[in-house]
């Protein structure tokens, strides 16, 4: 007999909630559902931070391994193999070795962090990342007492990463943090956006997110993490040390030699978007300023 079973399912039940709900509803809804407990973590859920659309976040990327154009990563990153994936953790750690991505994910607890993302090119977004604290991963590997810095390395595989066929930068891409920066609770290893697996153009399967630093510090598609006692080399600093320092903290008072860092354009505002003032440490001054107490940020840019 027909119509015995009444379908009460809607689109809501099929599509993951985070994707179905528009960004405004997502924020309101999350708070209403009591998920606002996340807000207790520093900067996790901040009032007035409205995430960019999925399309903005995944179509406008700097990932020179796939080309220097903003849409190149979205066009070319499909060629990247991310399964299997492992991260070599070595240097001054108790348990060095190759950690399979799945094993890392089993050991870590993933949460959502909505962060401002400020590119050194003076544009910005707000991204709802999913990820775990880098501190947890480093602790799992066992940090030895002599460790002072953390070095990171992106995959080098020119047959899949077409941008690596050109000497735009000295491949593979490398980055670094001071250990206290790496251990800061804001420092995230992102594995997702909007509750979905992080897209390849955004640095799949796992990338760093350091929200108070310019975006290029947040190295993508990481294959190696090394704890060291010396400040590690970083790609943009190697390419142009006058323009890109090791710290690269977001600082409206220290200009890039070629452009002002006092203001930024939020992506998604269209052709007539107004600029907005850039915040010290990208708005995370309260949380991170103490890391740099007594340092001249004009010298250590």
């Amino acid at each position: 007999m027909a119509f015995r079973w009444k379908n009460t399912l809607t689109e809501n039940d099929v599509t993951p909630e985070a994707l179905y709900l528009s960004r405004r509803q997502l924020m309101g809804g999350a708070a209403g559902l009591g998920l606002a407990t996340l807000a207790g973590r520093a900067g996790a859920m901040e009032a007035g931070l409205e995430p960019n659309d999925w399309d903005d976040i995944t179509s406008y990327n700097n990932f020179y391994e796939f080309g220097t154009g903003k849409s190149d990563p979205a066009n070319n990153a499909h060629a990247l193999t991310i399964d299997p994936w492992s991260v070599r953790i070595d240097g001054l750690v108790d348990k060095p070795g190759d950690y399979a991505f799945e094993d890392i994910m089993k050991a870590m607890s993933v949460e959502e962090r909505i962060y401002r993302f400020r590119c050194v090119e003076a544009w910005s977004m707000v991204v709802p990342w999913n990820g775990f604290e880098l501190a947890d991963l480093l602790t799992m590997a066992g940090i030895q007492s002599g460790a002072k810095y953390v070095a990171f390395e992106t995959l080098y595989r020119p047959e899949e990463m077409v941008g690596q066929k050109y000497a735009v930068l000295d491949w593979p891409y490398v980055e670094g943090l001071r250990l206290d920066e790496a251990m800061h609770p804001l420092t995230l290893m992102a594995t997702g956006i909007y509750g979905r697996d992080i897209p390849k153009q955004n640095g799949a399967p796992l990338r760093l997110v350091v929200p108070w630093k310019y975006g290029f510090k947040s190295i993508k598609s990481i294959v190696r993490i090394t704890l060291t006692d010396k400040e590690p080399p970083t790609s943009w600093n190697i390419a142009n040390g006058r323009e890109y320092g090791f710290y690269s903290n977001v600082n409206p008072k220290v200009d890039h030699p070629r452009w002002s860092q006092a203001s930024e354009r939020v992506i998604g505002g269209g052709l007539f978007a107004r600029k907005q003032p850039t915040l010290m440490f990208n708005g995370y001054e309260e949380e991170v300023a103490s890391l740099y107490a007594g340092m001249d940020l004009g010298t250590f840019f």
Binding site: S59, K70, R265, G270
Partner: peptide, 15 residues
């Protein structure tokens, strides 16, 4: 293109 989203997420620099 810039007015209709054809220049991507940041049409100002693109234009």
């Amino acid at each position: 293109l810039g007015l209709t989203g054809g220049l991507g997420a940041e049409p100002i620099k693109a234009l």
